[in-house]
Design a protein around this nucleic acid. Structure first.
Length: 497
DNA sequence: TTTTGGGG
């Protein structure tokens, strides 16, 4: 009914311009046409190898709503259509119809006469464009009729029916370095402090990346694997920034995000926006996933009402409410741990919750993987007790040694250095008190077997640490500066066997 | 008038 009405309207043209329905436009290959469309997908402008920028979009109307018509618009950066929201209405004049890969497409270029106006797709929002490519434009009676028809139709056709998921779409939990993919995700943080003209954006969809291995090439490159490769700095965003993040789910950095500047400023997505990243890749650096924004990648806007966004938010809310779903998604269920704590009834916290806890001193239970130890050699796990506690210089106390070890812990939300020290370590290693390990070969062998199990060391292939639960306690070194001198240590955790 | 890029 509406289709017929629009058809009648379109052919009863009184104004200067004749507008085609999209179904009619797509058969006009190699001709220039005028049409109205609802923007179902829109990707931000990006630079090309040529002089112009390019932005792409998919437009639909009631005559042509699946899969819609792809539009490519070439123009200088300051003449790009800047679509506010999926669902807005765009009008093109003198846009060239073409065929590519057996599908119709429209190519617009103001150099060859193309123009556009953009206006809201909501009923009752008036007829004043919020952006126009030229200062002279007209909105006649029949333009208002077409806008009304499109708005009415769109109000009963949610945008999801236009821009659903596709075969390239992945969740963060399923990404791997072998393929390119699309991601529907929320921008949590935009770091503009990094290199000039480049920013790092941090994205999230509520799911957890799979455990990553260290790249053997990187291992070879590192001078000091224990200290450098497992640096906790890689994830060290300011605590107040991390505190604004959701407590579950991996936050994926996206690098490098090249910024196309123009007169209206750089086109950087804003924190809080949901976007569809198109055709991005990923890699593993220092054991952590990074998204890679390639020259073929694009960033598309998403309405928060989109089904894909709603699905992310619903799944995340469900994760929050369930003890089991809160656990890392790649951790076996029910969880098995070679470490035993005396606090298995205590709720499991993510490392992000640990890192952002408002109180400096607190206790937690975490489900983590032990990625590395420092020292790396078990032989160096015990050190002589400091003299002040070990007795006089002239009479060193027999066996006055103490464990002093640092573990690098990881879960999908973060990486954390924790200390295993003193009596907590004696309890942890069960049956192996601190000794001068250079004098105790049997103890060294037993400890090494335990540590290798903890690190998931295997004869063939890279280490794959198992998931373990452990108790952590935060404390400070300097009472005057508790936040700046906060440290973490393992307590109440045993490694029997 | 028709390069750029177009889900590589």
């Amino acid at each position: 009914m509406l289709q017929r009405t629009m058809s009648i309207e379109l052919h009863r043209v009184q104004g200067k311009y004749n507008y085609d329905r999209l179904a009619d436009a797509v058969v006009c290959v190699d001709k220039k046409v005028n049409f109205y469309g609802i923007v179902a997908e829109y990707e931000q402008p990006k630079s090309t190898r040529g002089d112009d920028c390019l932005c792409t979009m998919t437009v639909v109307d009631m005559s042509y709503n699946t899969p819609g018509l792809r539009v490519l618009y070439f123009a200088p950066a300051d003449q790009m259509p800047r679509v506010n929201t999926v669902g807005d209405i765009i009008r093109f004049h003198r846009i060239q119809m073409r065929s590519h890969a057996d599908a119709p497409q429209a190519i617009g270029n103001p150099k060859y006469g193309a123009s556009f106006v953009l206006l809201s797709g909501l009923e009752g929002d008036g007829y004043e464009p919020y952006q126009k490519s030229h200062s002279r434009y007209s909105v006649e009676a029949h333009d208002r009729d077409i806008v009304d028809l499109l708005r009415t139709w769109a109000s009963s056709h949610p945008i999801d029916t236009f821009a659903g998921t596709n075969k390239y779409m992945k969740q963060i939990k399923d990404i791997n370095v072998e393929s390119y993919f699309d991601l529907c995700c929320k921008i949590l943080y935009v770091n503009e402090q990094s290199a000039e003209n480049s920013v790092i954006i941090y994205v999230w969809d509520g799911t957890d990346t799979s455990p990553a291995c260290l790249n053997p090439v990187e291992q070879g490159e590192s001078d000091d694997p224990g200290q450098d490769l497992w640096s906790a700095k890689e994830l060290a965003l300011p605590v107040d920034v991390m505190r604004s993040f959701p407590v579950l789910g991996t936050v994926l950095p996206l690098v490098p995000f090249d910024v196309a500047e123009d007169d209206s400023g750089p086109q950087i997505p804003l924190a809080g926006d949901w976007v569809k990243l198109r055709n991005i890749g990923c890699r593993i650096r220092k054991g952590l996933y990074e998204g890679i924004f390639l020259h073929k990648s694009k960033i598309g806007i998403l309405s928060p009402s989109t089904q894909a966004v709603q699905n992310c938010e619903r799944a995340y809310k469900e994760r929050l409410t369930s003890e089991t779903l809160r656990l890392p998604q790649w951790c076996p269920k029910p969880p098995q741990s070679m470490l035993v704590t005396g606090y298995d009834h205590v709720k499991v916290s993510t490392l992000r919750e640990v890192l952002t806890h408002p109180q400096v001193t607190n206790k937690f239970r975490c489900m983590v993987r032990v990625m590395a130890t420092w020292p790396t050699d078990v032989l160096d796990f015990c050190v002589p007790l400091p003299e002040s506690t070990a007795g006089g210089k002239d009479q060193p106390e027999q066996g006055a040694f103490v464990y002093a070890v640092r573990f690098t812990l990881e879960d999908p939300t973060g990486r954390l250095h924790v200390f295993l020290y003193g009596q907590d370590a004696v309890d942890f290693f069960v049956g192996y008190p601190a000794v001068d390990l250079r004098q105790q070969g049997d103890t060294v062998g037993a400890l090494k077997r335990k540590v290798d199990r903890l690190l998931g060391v295997s004869e063939s292939g890279p280490s794959n640490p198992p998931w373990v639960n452990c108790c952590l306690m935060s404390y400070y070194l300097d009472k005057e500066r508790p936040h700046d001198t906060r440290r973490f240590r393992i307590f109440g955790t045993r490694f029997p066997g």
